[in-house]
């Protein structure tokens, strides 16, 4: 890997290690992203992003602000239309269906059944005027749940698990603190056990102690539920805690990927080295 790659128009990817799940795994990847590019008019969002997420794996995407992490995530989520690329999911169709070619309504159905997103800004993932239980009911009813008692039970179970006091279940989320809103987002996202969870800076902007609590929760939930996850963050501490494997993005491109601990220990790409250096202080 030559140092000049950092400034080359299309930097190549450095692989520091093999992937951490067996390549012969009988189950197809939960998510496969190929040559994903997004331009906002003339502005580059991301380009030729490629990665896979195994079922139950949490993959990290790290990079400084503006490096294209959210762009890639939003293209997967269907919030933004990708300019080009191919995205398949193990649970969708025969595993070879390019979700980017699906109709907008099929895409939205995917967002209910197969993909859940937790945003940095809770108002993107929740209706703040609706109660915590109601926000969970939103996802459950969209997924076809029609039994009020069962919806209440499931919502209570999820809120209990995400450590939202049950006596707040029927209060509008607007009255909740930032940390609690993220917990409600998590409860809603996991309500119908989707196979893929996308987390975009889930703790950014929270007080350090609150963020630590939410991170602990996310880590436990990822472990318990076996949901495949993509964790987007500019913060190595978050990536280190939640993922075993990660990508480094820079100016819209993936410049390096590998096992998180190795990448932190021994970053190869000059940009990763700077990033890690800055994080280590």
């Amino acid at each position: 890997m030559s140092p000049s790659a950092a400034t080359a128009p299309i930097p190549t990817t450095t692989t520091t290690s093999t992937v951490d799940y067996p390549p012969s795994s009988p189950r197809p990847p939960a998510l496969t992203v190929r040559q994903l590019s997004k331009y906002y008019g003339p502005i580059l969002g991301c380009r030729d992003v490629e990665f896979e997420v195994a079922p139950g794996e949490a993959l990290g995407i790290i990079g400084e602000s503006g490096s294209g992490k959210s762009t890639a995530m939003r293209c997967i989520a269907g919030d933004h239309d990708a300019t080009s690329g191919r995205i398949t999911m193990g649970t969708v169709g025969d595993g070879h269906t390019d979700i980017l070619t699906m109709s907008p309504s099929d895409r939205r159905a995917l967002r209910v059944k197969d993909i859940a997103v937790v945003y940095q800004d809770p108002s993107e993932g929740l209706d703040l005027g609706v109660s915590a239980g109601g926000n969970i009911a939103d996802r459950l009813t969209a997924a076809g749940w029609r039994n009020f008692g069962r919806i209440r039970e499931r919502a209570a179970e999820l809120l209990e698990r995400t450590e939202v006091p049950l006596d707040r279940m029927d209060d509008p989320v607007r009255t909740f603190s930032g940390g609690m809103r993220q917990r409600v987002q998590l409860a809603k996202a996991l309500a119908n056990r989707p196979p893929l969870l996308l987390l975009d800076e889930p703790t950014t902007g929270l007080d350090a102690s609150v963020a630590a609590g939410v991170l602990d929760l996310i880590r436990d939930l990822l472990e318990e539920t076996g949901v495949g996850a993509v964790v987007v963050s500019h913060d190595f501490k978050v990536i280190e805690m939640l993922t075993r494997r990660c990508l480094v993005m820079h100016q819209g491109h993936v410049v390096e990927q590998g096992l998180t601990d190795q990448l932190l220990e021994d970053p190869q790409h000059p940009y990763s080295q700077r990033l890690v250096g800055a994080a280590r202080g």
Binding site: S105, R108, D170
Partner: peptide, 19 residues
């Protein structure tokens, strides 16, 4: 209406029942 996406309606019925 086009997509038959009435989950907001269901949420409002849910909230009504809760309240």
């Amino acid at each position: 209406h086009a997509e038959g996406d009435y989950s907001k309606m269901w949420v409002s019925l849910y909230e009504d029942l809760v309240r």
